[in-house]
Design a protein around this nucleic acid. Structure first.
Lengths: 217, 217
DNA sequence: TAAAATATTTAGACAAGTCTAAAAAATTGA
DNA sequence: TCAATTTTTTAGACTTGTCTAAATATTTTA
């Protein structure tokens, strides 16, 4: 069984591996974990001793198969709990993160399995991120960013890239929610801001917004 | 906010205070926590520094108001989660303890409040123990042990004193469950074993059993 | 009531996870 | 290409919670 800290490092490495294909640097990991590079070096050595990561000094770190499985299991639990909090306990999508960060470390296979069943085997968490199944398979979808759409195109909002409470509350305030249709009516060359139509209402959004909204055509 | 370890000590002191009115001894606490007396002394000092307990060297320990509130909050969460696991996630009552021991330390007032609401404000956990409400009030009930009944008397099974998996599985095996009526048909003077009637079936039980079943007349 | 037994505390150590400061390695760029 | 910069690692320290062994206090009992 692994400590909370070990699990958090594995999760962070998993997320960073998408961005840094050749291996995750100590500094990148330190930033993600909001800690010091020296602490990261220490922890990486520990994870390496436990065969959870592959590590060569000065060359960054990658997950081993065992490390990947563990990371996915933690992510699975995190996203299942987020779904539970929103669907069953009246949490808003901007309130779930911190609680799920705690719940994701609860150790009980039966709990995860039964929670999944109780929730009806959900495929996506409240932010549109895929929930891996018990075998660790993520359902893939060909989503793209709203900022990648051209003028005149339409899509369905299916997820958010930034899951910060500030961004989520901005979306709430402007009635942008997953499942809603968005039409790009105009794109301003100067700053890439967009005029979109959602619920029949026009709304002007900056690139900071359109670059953080996932869309399915 | 308090550490898991601190919360576990507070909970243990709370439970032991019922038995040791004048103050809980270091050794009693060490036994309850399955640790060494020296570790207990260390932790008590820490809890005392934080004003969670009242402590004078060599004289045992008592909870302060703040300590009591905290202990009750942990117990509330433990029992709410046990109820959740049994009622919603198909756990048996002998399987919930270890998971609830983890879940009881999740920090989120909203989570506890909403979980309570979601479950319909349950008054008792799967073992018949009272679940304190948000203000820390326990619902009291004048239960007694089955072993205290006389020949010919009848009661409803309302709780278990021993919550070990072994005991709970014994009860399952013999179809003894909370809510069922039990009649004492005979008491054997020699060993205090009882012949009881439950579901119209006769069953002979030892004092080890009757002394761990709570009954309401 | 004093010796024996028991209970409690103190002293010093250790592991996990973190930190700062300094050293070493790798990378960049003039 | 080699000096400057950046990145990474090492060394040593700190905190939390634990432990063992020894010292001290309390209680029991003969």
């Amino acid at each position: 069984m692994f400590s909370f800290s070990e699990e958090n490092y594995l999760k962070a490495i998993f997320h960073l591996e998408r961005r840094y294909k050749g291996g995750v640097s100590t500094n990148a990991l330190a930033e993600e974990m909001e800690t010091k590079a020296s602490s990261v070096t220490d922890m990486i050595r520990k994870l390496s001793d436990k065969q959870l990561v592959i590590y060569k000094k000065y060359q960054g770190v990658k997950l081993s198969e065992k490390g990947r499985t563990t990371a996915i299991e933690v992510i699975r639990k995190h996203r299942l709990w987020e779904f539970f909090l929103v669907e069953k306990l009246n949490f808003n999508w901007d309130e779930v993160h911190d609680v799920a960060e705690q719940l994701e470390h609860i150790k009980s296979e039966k709990l995860t399995r039964e929670l999944d069943k109780f929730l009806g085997f959900p495929k996506r968490d409240p932010h549109g991120d895929p929930i891996p199944d018990a075998e660790g398979n993520f359902s893939v979808s060909n989503k793209l960013l709203l900022s990648e759409l051209d003028k005149g195109q339409t899509g369905i909002c299916v997820g958010v890239k930034d899951t910060s409470a500030d961004f989520l509350r901005y979306l709430d305030k402007n009635k942008i929610a997953l499942g809603k249709a968005i039409e790009v009516k105009e794109i301003e060359d100067f700053d890439n801001s967009m005029l979109i139509v959602i619920d029949g209402q026009e709304l002007r959004i900056s690139q900071a917004i359109s670059g953080n909204l996932f869309i399915k055509k």
